[in-house]
Design a binder for these strands. Sequence first.
DNA 1: CGTTAGCACTCGACTAAGATGAGTGCTAAC
DNA 2: GTTAGCACTCATCTTAGTCGAGTGCTAACG
Lengths: 344, 344
Amino acid sequence: MLTERQRLILNAIVDDYIRSAEPVGSRSISKRGDVGFSPATIRNEMADLEELGFLEQPHTSAGRIPSHKGYRYYVDHLEPIYEALPTELRSLRTYFAEKLNATEQVIQHAAMILSHITNYTSILLGPEVFHTSLRHFQLLSLNETTAVAIIVTSTGQVESKTVAIPAGVSVSDMEKVVNLLNSKLVNVPLYKLKSSLYRELGQEMQRHLTHFEEIMGILDNIFVDTETDQRVYLSGATNMLNQPEFKDVDKVKDILDLLEETPTLTKMMAATQGSAGIQVRIGTENDHEAFANCSLITATYSLDGEALGTIGILGPTRMEYARVMSLLGILSNDLTKMLSKLYK
Amino acid sequence: MLTERQRLILNAIVDDYIRSAEPVGSRSISKRGDVGFSPATIRNEMADLEELGFLEQPHTSAGRIPSHKGYRYYVDHLEPIYEALPTELRSLRTYFAEKLNATEQVIQHAAMILSHITNYTSILLGPEVFHTSLRHFQLLSLNETTAVAIIVTSTGQVESKTVAIPAGVSVSDMEKVVNLLNSKLVNVPLYKLKSSLYRELGQEMQRHLTHFEEIMGILDNIFVDTETDQRVYLSGATNMLNQPEFKDVDKVKDILDLLEETPTLTKMMAATQGSAGIQVRIGTENDHEAFANCSLITATYSLDGEALGTIGILGPTRMEYARVMSLLGILSNDLTKMLSKLYK
DNA sequence: CGTTAGCACTCGACTAAGATGAGTGCTAAC
DNA sequence: GTTAGCACTCATCTTAGTCGAGTGCTAACG
């Protein structure tokens, strides 16, 4: 749909704009060398590209900047030519040298490093409940009325919750319940835990226990989070402030506010989780007004062929797509390899 | 050291400046009503106050703003006259209505609400290791080479760590160790855990176990964090961006960067933990250049008479001291009461 | 016919000069 | 001791003018 020359010029404009954050003029494109035409010719093509919606003009006498559509085209036709620098690779892989052996720690650490070397914000969605199952359940009383419930998942995550034990419920009753859960519900996926509880154990428990209602109430309370709880970690949120387009506090405020809102983040990250590989969402494709000038690049990491979680890099729409995509690719590969080594 | 009139004028200036964030002139003080003197008289006093170091002048023809010394005087002589508004009290206490029964959750929630109603940033230092002890220790194997160690503290906090089990170490060996720990080290304060491990169990373990060295290595690895690990929670960090003094991105960047650095935060909060009651650190008293224009107000909450943790509110030096101090006072009281009800 | 040189035009960014006014310090009078 | 009066300072705002990067159009060129 675009001629070869148009493609070349669009590419050059996006490249330049990514580097400089300033509108790009026809003369500077001509001088780059890789487009061997005079400014006048380039101007003509630029006018066409603007009419087609790939470019925008902040005002009449300024250069052009890519529109969202322009970025989209650029990304879709990007050849993955970026070669990660040795220093980047080295820092990206330092965490393999350290003795980390918890999924969460490894991934968290990786995301931190990623935000450092890219100078963007990294968002990380922890292992997904859909793919983790119950490994062990335990109840530990702290005093007469309070106890801690501990849930260990198949990936080694530990969730805990303090619960109140109603008067009248005996220790032996609770022990029975815990044993029952451990014998019947181990290896059940977390998101099915609550339903399995009723279906498989309801009758049996009602037979053996005196305070059935109260105990079910407690268990409900313990498992209520397991259905939705996905941990989100942020790293380098303040890197947003480095971008010249956000030098105005009001613009960046909305973004940082949104980043503080865990549920929104979870939702946004989860939305990309459908398809594997590296995903790019540009500007308004993120469905959040605050992110209208941001792009989010995500990659999933997996264990056993199944997507476990997502790592995302958030930056301005004018972000270094090639570099970030390449780095994310390397990382998600390494992570997947490492996880399978840990848990196979 | 200051005359009554000087005190009155200083108070008025600080009050006005807190409200308006603009240098305060002599005329506006005179018009307030509570200082019944003409602008000229007030100007004379202001000149004296400036010479004494309580006030500063941004430039010759501007009004005065309080210096750090001025704020300090203001805070030290502040009569706690602020009456919390009914709406403030109500939202501050909503979390008591909800059924929360984990220390951490309650406090975290409280800090969140506090940052909302004050429009400042709240920082929260979780229960201190100095005052929590081991309640239960457990090791749960995930597969042949990996296991999860779970530590439950006397306040119901759960810490977990995934560890690698070296080949050759048998399950029964590990079981022996776990039993030994649970029988000998329960109720030992967390920060003494590592030393007690060597002193009390070293010999006995060496006698009974085959792979003593390896096992001690694992335990070391598990307990290494317990000596220092204090969780820090942040809420409303972006509220900093609302303050007119931080409308310049460069100024606020350093602050937000520092807030992202957990260890620094921990240290800063821990520094205030010495004395009980409400503490105020103004400007450079915080020992961090980035916080030179910020004040930190902290309160400790306690269980059983011993300080457990700290809640802090961070704002510009020009912050509403009276209001925040009063709210923090109410909250730390309520929290202390609630905790003792939960764990007694 | 595609490409390019030339040129008038646009418009934001920067600069300088002047006006405004809030606020001060000083002096003299009450 | 207090206050009115007044000259002075200086950041902020406004206006006008200049500059220059970049455009769109036209005409010439191979």
